[in-house]
Design a protein around this nucleic acid. Structure first.
Length: 431
RNA sequence: CGGGGAGUAGCGCAGCCUGGUAGCGCACCUGGUUUGGGACCAGGGGGUCGAAGGUUCGAAUCCUUUCUCCCCGACCA
């Protein structure tokens, strides 16, 4: 992608509305534009990041055996009346009346809809277990949206729902998702801390929330150090679930079961939540199957959410410096940028064009060919967090060199033009 | 919803107290000079001051109403 052809309005000034760093950086880097309180347009750069995160979440869901579908954003009130949540849910639910006076709503979650879909087709225990998910926009009319996309009213969420014959089976499904969540967050380069949680309005008996560590996180976590050392090759959910972890208001030092030197205190951002809630919705919405004795029994369900749009903000909170965002390679909107400092210089242009032509078919490349000052180019590329940057200037090109910069560490080295492609390929492929 | 704050050019702000129809920085446009970390000089375009009503000869400025946005709290992916 040629930068001159892209749409990435970077800003020097931060709009006063943005309080926290991720929100500021998202606005300054041209990722999002606020439309109204808690509602955002995703500009091209932000959309790329959002999609990259979405795809990793999707991939891990698929690997864990979940099956993707897509349910609508707008739901009929009927199902919610049936489940009893139409009144329960309160003002957070955006209620709308259509032209013929029917009550509809913008879905804040999908237990009702998915249960209805399930019960329409599945009648036998032989079809279990099932695990269905979708990645869809939700709307919750928060009393106070804040922190940019970290707590918007409209947000993108991956939510899935498991259906099992028995509680024991449901716990297996639950743990499978638990593992998938750990894998997902690790793959995003985050350190997930799993905590036993309250089940809240979803209801149920078993629940974990997943917080990722970030200095600027909203919640204070008290947890066993061991939670940070996850064996990525063999994720032992039982072990992870056995470690102590609590948010500050549930933590009581006098009753804390672990040694002080084993206890760690850190800030976290909640990015995922999983629930097992038994037959709460299946009974109300008629999701019954016949078991092997021919009896109709309600299915045991669980639901599992990951805030994808929140993760964008959360990841920035977890990874930035004073120059801007530092994206991990797999999330970065572009993997590498080719920065031509002297667009009017023939040699520089030749070198830059050549890199671009050779690499653009292989990776997502940003070719900074803009007619603007050197400082702006360099600082923009840092701001938007491109992991690798090839900086091409007159001075180096004369010596057959270019600068290769790693955003993560801000280290840069001079490399020969001839070797550059190989070095880049090595970095991007074997990373 | 309770408490606090803010709406003046695309963004950040000053002007408001002590009414006399708007100004600065960044961004933008033109010309020139520059060119390895948000360049410099000169020239230029753009706002009727969130909205409505009122007071006044005259309102960004005073009064009333209203809308929006932000921050702190309870809640959440």
């Amino acid at each position: 992608m040629k930068f001159s052809n892209f749409f990435s309005p970077t800003l020097k000034n931060v709009p006063a509305e943005a309080e926290i760093i991720s929100h500021q950086l998202m606005i300054r880097s041209g990722m999002i534009k606020q439309s109204s309180a808690g509602i955002y347009s995703w500009l091209p750069l932000g959309l790329r990041v959002l999609k990259n995160i979405e795809n990793i979440v999707r991939d891990e869901q698929n690997k864990a055996g979940a099956v993707e579908l897509l349910m609508p954003t707008i739901q009929s009130a009927d199902l919610w009346i049936k489940s009893g949540r139409y009144n329960e849910y309160g003002k957070e639910m955006l209620r709308i009346t259509d032209r013929s006076g029917r009550e509809i709503l913008y879905g804040p979650t999908n237990e009702e809809l998915i249960t209805d879909i399930f019960q329409s087709y599945i009648n036998s225990y032989k079809d279990l277990p099932k695990n269905l998910y979708h990645i869809q926009w939700k709307f919750r009319d928060e009393v106070r949206p804040r922190f940019g996309v970290m707590r918007g009213r409209e947000f993108l969420m991956k939510d899935n729902y498991s259906f099992d014959l028995s509680e024991q089976d449901a716990i297996i499904s639950y743990n499978k998702m638990f593992e998938a969540y750990i894998k997902t967050f690790l793959r995003l380069g985050l350190i997930p801390i799993s905590l036993r949680a309250e089940t809240g309005p979803i209801g149920g008996s078993l629940s974990h929330e997943f917080q990722i560590l970030a200095k600027t996180g909203e919640s204070t976590l008290y947890y066993d150090k061991a939670l940070e050392q996850i064996d990525t090759t063999n994720i032992d959910t039982k072990k992870l679930q056995s470690y102590y972890a609590a948010v500050d208001d549930l933590h009581d030092q006098s009753k804390c079961p672990i040694e002080k030197n084993q206890l760690k205190i850190a800030k976290g951002i909640e990015v995922g939540h999983i629930f097992y809630f038994g037959t709460k919705y299946s009974e109300k919405l008629g999701a019954f199957v016949q078991n092997n004795r021919g009896e109709n029994v309600p299915v045991h369900m669980g639901s599992y959410g990951i805030g994808i749009s929140r993760l964008v903000g959360a990841m920035i909170e977890a990874s930035h410096d004073d120059k801007g965002i530092i994206w991990p390679l797999n999330i970065a909107p572009f993997k590498i940028s080719i920065i031509n400092l002297m667009i009017d210089d023939e040699n520089c242009k030749k070198v830059a064009d050549n890199f671009y032509n050779q690499l653009s078919s292989k990776f997502e490349i940003l070719y900074d060919d803009r007619d603007c000052s050197i400082g702006k180019k360099l600082s923009d590329n840092d701001l938007i967090g491109i992991p690798y940057q090839i900086i091409i200037g007159k001075r180096d090109v004369k010596d057959n060199l270019v600068e290769f910069k790693i955003r993560q560490t801000n280290e840069s080295t001079k490399i020969s033009i001839d070797e550059a492609i190989n070095i880049v390929l090595k970095k991007l492929i074997y990373k």
